[in-house]
Amino acid sequence: MRLRIVEDGVRTTVEQAIHKSLTACLQCSKCGGGCAHTEEFDLTPRQVVESLLDCQDDKVLNSRTIWLCGKNCTGCQAVCPVGLPLNEINAVLREEALARGIEPKYQQPSLVYHKFEHCAKHRGEGEASESIFRGEA
C-alpha cells in the first residue's frame, strides 16, 4: 500500500508533550534492537517515529505497539543517541487513541501496560519486566 505523505498530524501534539522535535531522530534503529517487547510490536519504535514524521496518524494510532510499550520503561531512551523518550511518545499516542475512541490493542489483558494501568498488585511485576532491559545493559 502506498502511503500518502502529509504534514499535519498528531506529530505536533507529541512534540509539544516531549519538548523535542522528532527530527532529532538519527534513523539508526538502536531503540528497537534492544527493546524487551519488540517481538510483540507491529511497528518498531523507529517505525513509530518515522510514521509520525510523515503524519501517518491512523497507522500509528491503530498499532499494537503504542499499547505494548512499557509505561515507565526508559530502556531505549537510555541508549538512544539523542535520548528520544519512546515511552513518553507512546503514552501521548495512547491518550490520543483513546480520545479518538480507538480500542486498546493487546493480545492478553495481562501484558505490562495493562498491569501498570489497571492492577496495583501486578505493578511490581510490571516494573521487574521493564528493568530487564536496564539489568542487562
Binding site: 534513523q27 534503529s29 528497537g32 534492537g33 517481538e39 518498531t44 523507529r46
Partner: peptide, 12 residues
Amino acid sequence: VRAEDSLIGNPV
C-alpha cells in the same frame, strides 16, 4: 549481539 534490521523492521 542484538539490533534491529531496519530494512525489514525486525529485531535480529
